[in-house]
């Protein structure tokens, strides 16, 4: 079953990170991706630019509306995601625990409707 981990952090909590800290963070993610690959459960991942760069588009109600910014202004913002393929929620939770984002913020685990 495929699960998507939505990685949420409060940008204010990351503001104090130095270049060195970011290097370490990247290494942590690199090691995590390697672990996922070695376990044969890695599907996809991405890291997203900050929400102020977002463009939100909607055709709801028949007319196109384009909004400069995220669809909702929240304190914690979506910063990236992982997609993993594991047997069940327990296994997904086990991988979410190991995700570096869990220590910096929150990981929302969502099962795929496509199986």
């Amino acid at each position: 079953m495929r699960y998507t981990f939505l990685l949420y952090t409060d940008p204010a909590n990351l503001a104090h990170l130095t270049a060195d800290d970011w290097d370490k963070e990247k290494q942590l993610y690199g090691a995590y991706i390697q672990d996922l690959n070695e376990a044969g459960v890695f599907v996809d991942t991405d890291r997203l630019h900050a929400t102020h760069t977002a463009t939100t588009l909607s055709l709801l109600g028949g007319t196109e509306r384009i909004q400069d910014g995220p669809f909702a202004d929240t304190k914690e913002t979506l910063g990236g995601y992982f997609v993993v393929d594991v047997p069940d929620l327990d296994a997904a939770m086990e991988w979410a625990r190991k995700c570096p984002a869990a220590r910096r913020g929150k990981v929302e685990i969502r099962a795929s409707m496509m199986g």
Binding site: M1, P87, D88, L89, D90, A92, R110, A111, M113
Partner: peptide, 14 residues
């Protein structure tokens, strides 16, 4: 059902 909680006895760590 949808989140894939499995029907099993947890292993000894959990």
């Amino acid at each position: 059902k949808d989140s894939g909680i499995t029907f099993s006895i947890p292993d000894s760590t959990d």
